[in-house]
Design a protein around this nucleic acid. Structure first.
Length: 534
RNA sequence: GGGGGUGUAGCUCAGUGGUAGAGCACCUGCCUUUUAAGCAGGGUGUCGAUGGUUCGAUCCCAUCCACCCUCACCA
């Protein structure tokens, strides 16, 4: 524990005051020039008494509505007000064409000097790509066949100072897309669609569990003691109480307390935090769903898991066949249910269940598996399984009955004392869920905590500390219970055909950018301090 | 953490041991149903950062930073 504090204690750094803006040297970059051009337009408008950032706009249709009912609107010459961001602008003599986008779609607007008058026409000349405007008029179809709003009056609703990315190539640079998600969302409709899917998926999970009478609950994110999994936590500090606190790594121990308290079906949509490496499947902050179901075992949970997936897929896709990379995942047939040792036997013809530790180790070695750290039978089985079976699991498959040595949180299997009642669900090669017949013997649980405590002292930063109150809770008696946890981000990845967790998180964790682009704040600070000059 | 790759204009990308280019965007002018509008003109840049080699580095070398891929660990 002490050792861990030394390595993970976070420095109580004050937020750095924003001095870059004030101290900036003479800025001579094209971006500054572009921003200056736009800022000058702001000042020009203000000089005319026009607020470039007004308060509201009485819009009466979304663009989608207009396009869906276009013929009627055109026939009746319905007056309408639309609003959106200017994404394209073309000037042709005394006429402008522009494309505006709102959250529902895109429409072309037509600004003709005879229709809007000279003053408005001049104002539109100063409209830049990225500005947000409101337009009033009636619709018509141009010679080229494009459905268009014939503008009679428009208003600037928000002046954009920063230029948009390229109108055709869009924003490709992944780093910029993650760091400035707003810019990504403005120009990449597919990205917006992916995140709408994310919301729908989460809603579908919630609907399903609520329909099954699972009670959605909330448990602490900020915890005096963490547990429920093996992971290094984020550590923080409560000033008034002067005590260390942790961000949760799992919900398990709190949800089980609620089962002890008498709720029979509980679940939580949980943000968890793990102080570990980051890669395409891992963000330090991530979303899980955990559920606990009293009087049920892991087979009941598997049946429920399968129903849940099928429900979610049906809510967000037209078909049970879902593309993922080069594969097509079919959720319609019953998911395969195969024990870990049987899945190995299918591929290698070797029955590990009948082997001793020494035999298993030798067999693993024969299969080309590195056996140096395989300290028991269970580790051998796991290593062989990971090497030979896991990569083959594309269609939904429950891998079940894990060896006891690698499943410290699961109940021993009722019919084989080398195994546990546990399954993991695999889809498209990713682990999509982990479930047990939960351990509810307080003495057994205490022994496992004590073992973990030794590992902690030995320097294992991912071991979990003894939670005395949880043992107390278990001593009141927890009914037989099945528990399931699954990563929501991965579920979203699978159902949106995304291959990095960063593409399903609006704001993935990024390292601090120490060098590189000059912040807009510096450019603006210089502009306002120099009265508009650079 | 190991290995590989990338970093040049607001965006998308070329390129070179003699301080740099294209398209889009931007600026100026022309054009009243255009549409990747067009036509004429304009390059607006600490070439990721810091050192080194060199007469001279954006380019070669070293270190560092960020991002991507991959392996190991984890949801």
């Amino acid at each position: 524990m002490k050792k861990e504090q030394n390595t993970t204690e976070q420095k109580q750094e004050q937020p750095k005051p924003s001095t870059r803006a004030e101290n900036s040297e003479q800025i001579q970059i094209p971006l500054a020039e572009l921003i200056k051009n736009r800022y000058e337009k702001v000042r020009k408008l203000q000089a005319k008494g026009i607020n470039p950032y007004p308060y509201r706009y009485e819009r009466d249709y979304h663009i989608r509505d207009v396009l869906d009912n276009f013929d009627e609107f055109e026939a009746q010459q319905t007056r309408m007000k639309l609003a959106g961001r200017v994404m394209l602008k073309r000037k042709m003599g005394k006429v402008f064409f522009a494309d505006i986008h709102d959250s529902t779609g895109r429409i072309q607007v037509y600004v003709k000097i005879n229709n809007v008058g000279e003053e408005q026409f001049e104002l539109f000349n100063d409209i830049d790509l990225g500005d947000i405007i409101g337009c009033e008029g009636t619709v018509f179809v141009t010679r080229m066949g494009e459905r268009t709003l014939n503008v009679t009056h428009f208003e600037l609703l928000t002046k954009a100072l920063h230029p948009l990315p390229d109108k055709h190539a869009g924003l490709q640079d992944v780093e910029t897309r993650y760091r400035r998600r707003y810019a990504d969302l403005i120009v990449n409709p597919d990205v917006r669609a992916t995140f709408v899917m994310r919301t729908k998926i989460i809603q579908a999970v919630r609907e399903f569990l609520n329909d099954q009478d699972f009670l959605e609950v909330e448990t602490p994110i900020l915890q005096p003691i963490y547990g429920g999994g093996n992971a290094e936590p984020f550590k923080t500090h409560h000033s008034r109480l002067d005590m260390p606190m942790y961000l949760r790594i799992a919900d398990e121990l709190y949800l089980k307390r609620l089962i002890i308290g008498g709720y029979e079906k509980v679940w939580e949509f949980c943000k968890d935090f793990r102080n570990e490496g980051m890669d395409r499947l891992h963000n330090p902050e991530f979303s899980m769903v955990e559920l606990y179901w009293a009087y049920a075992d892991y087979r009941d949970m598997a049946a429920l898991t399968e129903e849940l997936w099928r429900y979610v897929v049906s809510q967000v896709h037209d078909s049970y066949k879902v593309p993922y990379g080069e594969h097509e995942i079919d959720f319609e047939p019953r998911f395969r249910w195969v024990s870990m040792v049987d899945s190995i036997k299918e591929i290698t013809n070797l029955d590990f269940l009948s082997m001793s530790y020494d035999e298993a180790k030798a067999a693993a070695k024969n299969l080309g598996v590195d056996t140096d750290e395989l300290i028991n039978w269970g580790k051998c089985v796991e290593a062989v399984w990971e090497a030979k079976v896991e990569p083959t699991l594309i269609q939904p498959t429950f891998i079940t009955d894990f060896p006891k040595e690698i499943s410290p949180l699961a109940k021993q299997h009722r019919s084989n004392d080398r195994l546990t009642e546990r399954f993991e669900l695999f889809i498209a090669g990713m682990e999509m869920g982990n479930a047990f017949s939960e351990l509810n013997d307080p003495v057994d649980q205490l022994q496992r905590f004590l073992q973990q405590g030794k590992a902690l002292e030995a320097g294992d930063t991912e071991a979990q500390p003894l939670d005395d109150d949880f043992i107390t809770a278990l001593s009141y008696g927890m009914p037989p219970t099945a528990g399931l946890g699954f990563g929501v981000d991965r579920m979203v990845m699978l159902l949106t055909n995304q291959h990095s967790i960063r593409d399903v998180l609006f704001f993935p964790q990024m390292k601090e950018m120490k060098e590189g682009s000059i912040p807009v704040s510096s450019i603006l600070a210089q502009l306002i301090s120099n009265n508009g000059d650079i």
